[in-house]
């Protein structure tokens, strides 16, 4: 690991001052950043450890629309085990527990989880070209071993996927992200936080320099009773998703009043299935409808050889996850 400066500011203002400088990176749990630094994928000049900031806490606010706020430094394990989260958003709890290992969940924070980089092996291998790591150096995955890679929203520059489970659930739950900078506070809809690779795959998200994630806000919904997170992976636990599906259904009298669907392991960002959601709205919760929703969700999918299997696995996973959420299986 290359040498760097380490600072641990005690106030948010000092953090905001420090992160505007070139080469500075925020350190939260470090479970991904330290890994990347050890491998030479990233080499910050300065780490700004934000653990002294008061960005913990899970609280409920009741206003016109009630919501739950989760501090950016809350640990993944703490959120997954939190009573309020388990009651109101079991989908988030399930997704968090499907991610990483118990040890890593004790380190990884909510904000850090959002900022984790892709697990594309070509991104990690500094001997290989990668447009995300080294803009305009080429893409090793496009014609390489790409079984983990994207089938939606790809570009000629990049076919990497976002590795988070938590983010798939948050995208489905219509969360928003509170971000602070010297300019003030802004809120980013979770589905617009991460971005597609396009011409600039080096950019994972829409944060700008000098911005700090402070919390995530999830509005109240009626999906708690019919939620499911399905993760398909190479081993039973502790592996990244080949395909994952987050489902939240509001079922009343056998009919779907509202549906939320997002997929992981298929795109550069958590992939919301808006067409399928729209289709399911107002329809009975039946396998036949789920099959149609899955086929709608797959429109525009494109595979790259080793990941051809995802074109079959993805719709099957959508149907399975919907059936589980609706308690049909």
């Amino acid at each position: 690991m290359k040498q760097f400066q380490y600072i641990r500011p005690a106030t948010q203002q000092s953090v905001l001052d420090a992160i505007t400088k070139p080469g500075a990176r925020i350190l939260a749990g470090g479970s991904n950043l330290i890994d990347l630094m050890k491998r030479g994928v990233t080499s910050p000049d300065k780490l700004v450890d934000i653990q002294k900031l008061p960005l913990k806490g899970i609280s409920k606010s009741t206003g016109n629309v009630s919501s739950i706020s989760i501090g950016a430094l809350e640990l993944n394990s703490a959120v997954a085990e939190n009573k309020l989260i388990k009651e109101e958003f079991p989908l988030l709890s399930m997704a968090l527990n499907a991610g990483a290992s118990p040890q890593l969940r004790n380190m990884a924070t909510v904000g850090g989880n959002m900022m984790q980089r892709t697990r594309c092996t070509y991104f990690y291998d500094t001997a290989m070209p990668c447009n995300k790591r080294e803009p305009n150096s080429g893409c090793g995955a496009m014609e390489g071993i790409n079984r983990m890679h994207a089938i939606f929203g790809t570009s000629e520059k990049c076919i990497a996927v976002h590795p988070s489970d938590m983010c798939v659930a948050l995208a489905a739950l219509d969360a928003s992200v509170e971000v602070k900078s010297k300019k003030g506070t802004r809120y980013i809809p979770f589905t617009e936080f991460h971005r597609l690779p396009g011409e600039t795959p080096q950019l994972d998200n829409t944060l700008t320099t000098g911005e700090l994630i402070t919390r995530v806000i999830i509005p109240h919904n009626n999906f708690a009773k019919n939620s499911y997170y399905l993760k398909v992976r190479d081993r039973a636990s502790y592996a990244f998703a080949l395909i994952s599906v987050a489902v939240g259904l509001d079922i009343q009298g056998g009919n779907i009043k509202e549906a939320r669907l997002a997929m992981g392991g298929v795109a550069h960002k958590p992939w919301r299935l808006k067409a399928a959601e729209q289709f399911l709205k107002g329809k009975p919760a039946t396998v036949a409808n789920f099959e149609q929703a899955a086929s709608l969700a797959m429109q525009g999918a494109k595979s790259f050889g080793h990941n051809d299997f995802k074109l079959k696995m993805a719709p099957a996973s959508i149907i399975e996850a919907l059936s589980n959420a609706a308690k049909l299986s």
Binding site: Y6, L27, S31, P102, Q103, L104, N106, M107
Partner: peptide, 11 residues
């Protein structure tokens, strides 16, 4: 429990 290999001692 944490992975000490990914934990900077400073933290």
């Amino acid at each position: 429990r944490v992975n000490s290999c990914l934990t900077l001692a400073m933290t």
